[in-house]
Each structure stands twice: as structure tokens, then as C-alpha cells.
Write a protein that binds this DNA or RNA. Structure first.
Length: 330
DNA sequence: AAACCTTTGAAGGAC
DNA sequence: GTCCTTCAAAGGTTT
């Protein structure tokens, strides 16, 4: 059962039950190197600057506190959340409107997508503001990935941004899952230029929705990192994999459900999207690698085949001779 | 700078 | 239906 979109997404600052208690405040997850960075609001040093442009969107959806992040991910020294129901003590940024007692998931239902305040709605009132600007009240756009200008949005291919779903908004601003490696804002290359292919490669793309384990990793990574001395992601992921297996079914079910909601919203926003769309460079590399491996293997097999042909022909030859000998004797 | 590593799960294609 | 491949995140390490 999907939560109804008709339910209001209310911002209740004084709410006692704060679903964001465990949320990593997504707005801060902006790469420091991002040129659209809001200079007025410091980027947490610990945050990744690896993501090329817009930070990962999944936990940014204003409609969906989908992922429960631990606050200590980004502000280890921050006081207990119950002490600061409204304003982040470190950043001075008000918490986002939370869905109150509503479903913590994407409040989407297939038939009512257009009835909810879409993420884009967060952008529109901010016109003229820097992308990651901090309005007087300290509000930050919860959706940096969406806070882009018209020229940027024009770079998105229709299937990414077009509200293919009848109920979806039409502003052409993509789901936060869209990642553009070119937020560095260089002017868009002319469409049919020689560099078009390169430009094409750099086009932002709609990312896959995170699966249950990925959601779990996002939530637990910082905790695991804090608990051990390891820092390599590969090692951390091994630990997370073990912890995942140690989770109870109920605990895992929570993440499976989150992932299901995530996929659902993703499919609502990008009905024509296919995981295949993102099959790109990595695949190409691997394919080339495999191709070369296959070719070398084929060469070996051909060599093997040749040697087998040789052996079998010799066998036939000798067996023929043997038959001849035996036939002469008997 | 780019690829690799490492995990699980979803998706899509091939057979 | 099964198997295989790719990609989602992360960031230190390797090439």
C-alpha cells in the first residue's frame, strides 16, 4: 500500500516525533568543490567531494525522508537531537519539513503523483537565489541536484526530465538521482559539434535507485567507520556485508521496503528509464577486456582444436594400420 | 586521473 | 528459469 499523495507534507517544527532524528541532513551533502556551492554555509569537511556534482539525491528528496541517517554522520559533536528540534545547532539551518506522522516513505501513489508538492516546488520560490543559497531564514534548498538554471536543465534528455507521467510536474528538473558531472557550468557545447559525443558522455544521467543493502550502507557506513580504524571502503563494505547478514529479518525488511519505495518513486519520475541506460563506460571497458580475454581463449581453443584434430587423425591413421595388420593375420 | 576494490541487490539480456 | 553482467555508494589504494 503506497501512502496517499493527498496527505499533506507538513512541516511541524515543534513536532515531538522527529523522523529526522536519524537523518543525515541531506542539504549538507554538497561537494565542497561544487561551483554552485553556497559560500555562506560551510560544507562539512568530512563530506565526500567525490561525487562530481550534485550529491547523491536519494536522501534528499523533500518528500521523502526515505533513508534514516544518523546525524552523527556529519556532526559527531552535535548534541542529542532532542535538544534541538528545529535548528541544526551546528549549521543554524532549520530542518526540512518532515512528513510529520505520515509515511516516512515517498508519499507517492500511482494515481496521485501530481497532487503533492514536488521537489521542484522547492526550487521555484527560490528563483534568483544562488543554487545552494541560504535564504535569510537559514533555509537551504534540500535538493541541490534540482537547483539548476534553465541552461542546465536543458541539457537533460527528455526522458530524464520530461514528466512522462501525466501527473508529474513539467518544470523539467530531474529527480535528485540525476548526476551531472558537468556542474562545473562550462557553457554547453553546441549540439552537433565534433565534441558532441564527448558532451553526450558527460550528460547527466538518472542513477539507479539504491537497493536495500545500499541504503543500509549509506546509513551505517559512518558508524562503522567511527567504530573501527579502517577507512578503506572495500574493508568497510566487507564489514557492512557481514553486519547486513547479521540483521534480523525485520531489520532487513525495513531496508527492503525503503528500497521498494525508492524504486517506486524512481519509476514514477522516470517511467522510461532503464537500468540499461547507464550501461556505459564501465561496461565498455569490461567488454573490451572480456573480448580480449575471449579472443585469447579462442586462440587457445583453436590451438587445442588443431592439436586435437592432429591427434584424432593420427589415431585414425594408426587404427587403420592396426586393422590392416590384424586383418592380414586373421 | 582513472581504475580498482568490496559488499548486496535489482535489472536486463542471453540461452 | 537460470546464469551472467552491470551499476548503484564509498573512499582509500593502485596503476
Amino acid at each position: 500500500q503506497e501512502p496517499s499523495l493527498q496527505e499533506p507534507v507538513a512541516w511541524t517544527p515543534e513536532g515531538s516525533e522527529d523522523p529526522y532524528l536519524h537523518m543525515k541532513w541531506p542539504l549538507l551533502d554538497v561537494p565542497p568543490s561544487t561551483t554552485v556551492k553556497d559560500t555562506r554555509s560551510p560544507s562539512p569537511a568530512h563530506l565526500s567531494n567525490k561525487v562530481p556534482v550534485v550529491q547523491h539525491p536519494h536522501h534528499m528528496h523533500p518528500l521523502t525522508p526515505l533513508i534514516t541517517y544518523s546525524r552523527d554522520h556529519f556532526s559527531p559533536g552535535s548534541p542529542p537531537t532532542h535538544l534541538s528540534p528545529e535548528i541544526d545547532p551546528k549549521t543554524g539551518i532549520p530542518r526540512p519539513p518532515h512528513p510529520s506522522e505520515l509515511s516516512p516513505y515517498y508519499p507517492l501513489s500511482p494515481g496521485a503523483v501530481g497532487q503533492i508538492p514536488h521537489p521542484l516546488g522547492w526550487l521555484v520560490p527560490q528563483q534568483g537565489q544562488p543554487m545552494y543559497s541560504l535564504p535569510p531564514g537559514g533555509f537551504r534548498h534540500p535538493y541541490p541536484a534540482l537547483a539548476m538554471n534553465a541552461s542546465m536543465s536543458s541539457r537533460f534528455s527528455p526522458h530524464m526530465v520530461a514528466p512522462a507521467h501525466p501527473g508529474l510536474p513539467t518544470s523539467g528538473i530531474p529527480h535528485p538521482a540525476i548526476v551531472s558531472p558537468i556542474v562545473k557550468q562550462e557553457p554547453a557545447a553546441p549540439r552537433l559539434s565534433p565534441a558532441a559525443s564527448k558532451e553526450e558522455e558527460k550528460k547527466p544521467h538518472v542513477k539507479k535507485p539504491l537497493n536495500a543493502f545500499m541504503l543500509y550502507m549509506k546509513e551505517m557506513r559512518a558508524k562503522v567507520v567511527a567504530e573501527c580504524t579502517l577507512k578503506e571502503s572495500a574493508a568497510i563494505n566487507q564489514i557492512l556485508g557481514r553486519k547486513w547478514h547479521n540483521l534480523s529479518r525485520e531489520e532487513q525488511a525495513k531496508y527492503y521496503e525503503l528500497a521498494r519505495k525508492e524504486r517506486h518513486l524512481h519509476s514514477q519520475l522516470y517511467p522510461t528509464w532503464s537500468a540499461r541506460d547507464n550501461y556505459g563506460k564501465k561496461k565498455k571497458r569490461k567488454r573490451e577486456k572480456q573480448l580480449s580475454q575471449a579472443q585469447s581463449q579462442q586462440q587457445v581453443q583453436e590451438a587445442d582444436g588443431e592439436s586435437w584434430d592432429f591427434v584424432s587423425s593420427k589415431l585414425r591413421h594408426f587404427s587403420g594400420q592396426l586393422c590392416g595388420i590384424l586383418g592380414a593375420r586373421f
